[in-house]
Design a protein around this nucleic acid. Structure first.
Lengths: 335, 335
DNA sequence: TTGAAAGCGTTACCAG
DNA sequence: CTGGTAACGCTTTCAA
């Protein structure tokens, strides 16, 4: 079962391919009667232009690539969905790849996308990524690149939330509610997103002249297990924290479950707030306070920034989408 | 900034393209010294074969398509991730499209994939889809197709869970625990998955000679709001249900929240169990009993079935992955 | 208004 | 061992 080509149509009608090509694209230079015949036959035979021939001809693919740490993670799933939707609206196909939050996979994904001759790439670097030369190299090869969610300072357009400021607000809110021993669960120190959130947390503490207890700051690998053991350690301290700020959804969920499994009460024994999806918060009892991120907007902006670049705009734009704290029961004021 | 081609390399070395082609593919018929030079130069210049030229040449794309009702829904996100991973392992790219659970979008997605000349399509039909002619037409055009999660009876390979049997087991378990007025929240009656689950539910009731109360069976659109209003109606009945079986994750979550928002206690006032993700169950208090589905296996099998077809196996295989009930606190036995 | 031919990058086949 | 050429499907340019 072969696909039908312009040549097939041309042969059947005893005309030249170039005539068929013109007719099907509505160009001048073909008689109304002949055009009608060609269009008709094409429709009858279910003719579909071969995108590979067109790509080859124009060296253009109308395809973009996306690299994401984990598509099955709610946060990214929503952003990816939005990107795909925007892309399709604008006539672009979307190839989604998943790095599993690992540097090596990320490199693979990117080279795969480059091989595919995608016209642009939207990427959220893995938590392991500290060397960005593979991404800068793409830029040098004139392939538009946009970062989202996590963005290093390397002169590439990006869309992120107000990491530092939101963490500061969250910490302030905990302090307002009476917490004085606030723990911070973060990702790798080399990751700007995590560093920024930690920075906001530290700033808030300083503003309130609350001494920083280093043993309450846990930064490392982002994973369910890491969150679990870190929380365990926090709870086992001689003077355990009275609040936890989890700077990532996975850490928030694992900390939450660990606290409850130890028989502690939230928020009476310990408060918790995290960067996480609203509907996960909605399912938890007590409902977790969380930093609400506009995932739709992040996806939309990411594609928009890429489109700008693909259309020749060389300026570097770093967009910040403001996230805001949503208070629920997990940080209710102490009695 | 152009991509570098075999011709470029050939020119620089003063040899013919065909020689370059042979050298780069490790074929016979090129002297070791020349081959070395060619390979070296290609590496230096960052040569990447142009996939479109190859696709054009062989009429093969090494690409498969996936159509999913909602990538941002946890259940599908996990399956899609698995499919993408398996595909990549086997040298296939993956184009993921999202129908938003709407028939019209599904049709669009499929024609887009067909235009892309994908070599096979893995699809979970939307809940609105009752006419499958667009899918049967793909099969007739010799494009391999596999259904997953939801599969109508139309002679196309598929992988689903044991819908009827699992629903029967769940219902039995509720009955064992003392429930006698069990409500069923389902999807559209035209959807086989939902119909099968309802069937299992009804069978269990009949087996225990429990009269069927039609007002406890709510089948309609699958959405958060539908689940909410249906649950509201159930709770407002003169004789409200003492248990709810939610046949879809969205319905389970909305029913759960509705129950709690009405101030009712789970499971003391009403028990609930649903087809849903384990980790959502883990977050809820009380934790919801749920039907555990092996999403990894569903994804793996789906790709395997497609691969079989792409390799020429014409047989129709309908695989059933067994799901099993996991008991948690939301269905604890009544005191 | 229509046709012929070249070209996009690659591979296959046949000659030298 | 190497080169030339045709072919994949489509568009573009030039000629008739």
């Amino acid at each position: 079962m072969k696909h039908i080509s312009q040549r097939d149509i041309a042969k059947k009608l005893g005309v030249n391919v170039s005539t068929v090509s013109r007719a099907l694209r509505g160009l001048d230079g073909v008689s109304p009667i002949l055009r009608q015949q060609i269009v008709q036959l094409a429709a009858d035979q279910g003719y579909q232009p071969n995108p590979f021939a067109i790509s080859l001809r124009y060296d253009t693919t109308h395809t973009i690539g996306v690299v994401v740490p984990d598509v099955s993670f709610n946060h990214y799933a929503h952003i990816v969905k939005r990107i795909e939707c925007e892309a399709r609206k604008n006539g672009y196909m979307c190839i989604i790849t998943d790095s599993d939050d690992k540097f090596a996979n990320e490199v693979d994904c990117l080279s795969l996308l480059q091989n595919m001759h995608v016209e642009g790439i939207i990427v959220c670097p893995s938590q392991e990524t500290t060397d960005f030369s593979h991404l800068e190299q793409l830029k040098r090869a004139n392939i538009p690149v946009v970062f989202f969610d996590r963005a290093p300072d390397v002169g590439i357009s990006s869309v992120v939330i107000n990491d530092a400021e939101s963490a500061r607000q969250v910490t302030n809110s905990l302090i307002d509610r009476g917490a004085r021993n606030i723990a911070f669960l973060g990702g790798p120190n080399g990751m700007k997103q995590s560093a920024d959130r930690k920075h906001g947390y530290l700033v808030a503490l300083r503003e309130h002249r609350i001494p920083i207890r280093k043993e309450l700051v846990k930064c490392g690998h982002i994973s369910f297990n890491a969150g679990l053991t870190d929380t365990m350690e926090l709870l086992s301290l001689p003077e355990p924290p009275d609040a936890i700020l989890a700077s990532h959804g996975l850490l928030a969920v694992s900390a939450f479950q660990t606290i409850l499994s130890k028989g502690l009460r939230i928020p009476d024994d310990i408060a918790i707030v995290g960067y996480m999806s609203d509907w996960i918060s909605e399912m938890s009892t007590p409902r977790m306070s969380f930093v609400k991120q506009n995932l739709r907007e992040i996806g939309t902006v990411a594609f928009k920034l890429l489109l700008d670049q693909m259309q020749g705009d060389d300026s570097v734009k770093n967009v910040v989408v403001n996230a805001r704290l949503e208070l629920r029961e997990s940080t209710r004021k102490k009695p």
